[in-house]
Simulated scan of single mutants.
Amino acid sequence: MRQDLVGDEPAASRPPIVAAARTQRRPLFAVLAGLLILLGAAGGALVFLSTGSSVEAVAARVSVARGQVMTAEMFTTVQIAPDQQLSLMEASELPLLLGKRAAHDVAAGSLVSPEAGMEAMVPGSGRTVVGLSLPPGAEPAIPLLVGDRVRVILTEPAYACAAGETTESLDGSPATAGCTVNVVIPGTVVATARDEASGQVSVSVDVAAADAPRTAAAAALGRAALVLDSRDT
């Protein structure tokens, strides 16, 4: 005889009850995401503003030695953000440098300042440039630079005495022993080159026009030596 079930069904025959999934909010992650978005926007704005306010400045393409005549091939232009602490020359001012001599050494890749050029003419009024070819030992071991203050020492001034010239001692007073003292001629280096094979050094020295004849004569006879004076200004 079939008996109807009264009441609850057995647990095994009931479908499982699925609890509604609850969305868990994590406020910290939301805040961090917002901060990242703000930082990205701020960075983009900074890059845009810095690019928009940059200036085109002059930089040295190659090394430029003090005293060299400057040409357009020596320089290039770079984009740089303006800085009150930097002394720079804008690209529009580059023509002002061309044809001038470098007032100081300029390293390759460095910015060029407005004071980089000078108008000096060599030789100046009352001055003469004399070429000296010096054997090893007749010049300092320190490499000579354009602008160096030097003294040309005439090591055997007998030819000057024979020509009736008055020689001077090292302190500038008249010589008392005829041709046995050295003659000292101050000058400034305007160009220099070295022959690596022979060790011979060619130096062009700016001297007073009155000293040029005996300086050139001593150089031709191989009776001249060069000494370097202090580079402190």
Rank of each mutant, 00 (worst) to 15 (best):
M1I: 08
R2T: 13
D8E: 13
E9A: 12
A12R: 07
A12S: 10
A12T: 08
A12W: 12
P16E: 13
P16T: 03
I17M: 05
I17P: 01
V18D: 05
A19C: 03
A21P: 13
T23H: 12
F29K: 13
I37L: 15
L39Y: 08
G40E: 13
G43V: 05
F48A: 15
S50A: 15
T51C: 12
T51W: 07
A57T: 11
V58M: 04
R61Y: 02
S63C: 04
R66H: 02
E73W: 01
M74C: 00
T77N: 06
T77F: 04
Q79F: 02
D83Q: 07
Q85C: 04
L86V: 00
S87Q: 12
L88P: 04
L96E: 12
L96M: 02
L97W: 07
V106I: 14
A107G: 04
L111S: 01
P114W: 06
P114F: 05
E115M: 14
G117H: 06
A120C: 01
M121R: 08
V122K: 00
V122C: 00
R127W: 10
V130D: 00
P135E: 14
A141V: 02
L145N: 05
V146M: 10
V146L: 01
R149A: 14
V150S: 03
P157R: 09
A158I: 05
A158Q: 06
A160M: 15
C161N: 08
L170Y: 11
S173T: 14
S173R: 09
G178V: 10
V183H: 02
V183I: 13
V184Y: 14
A191E: 13
A193P: 05
R194K: 14
D195T: 05
A197D: 12
S198N: 03
S198Y: 03
Q200C: 00
D206V: 00
V207F: 11
A208V: 10
P213A: 10
R214G: 09
T215A: 12
A219D: 08
A220S: 11
L221R: 14
L228W: 11
S230A: 10
R231S: 09
D232H: 13
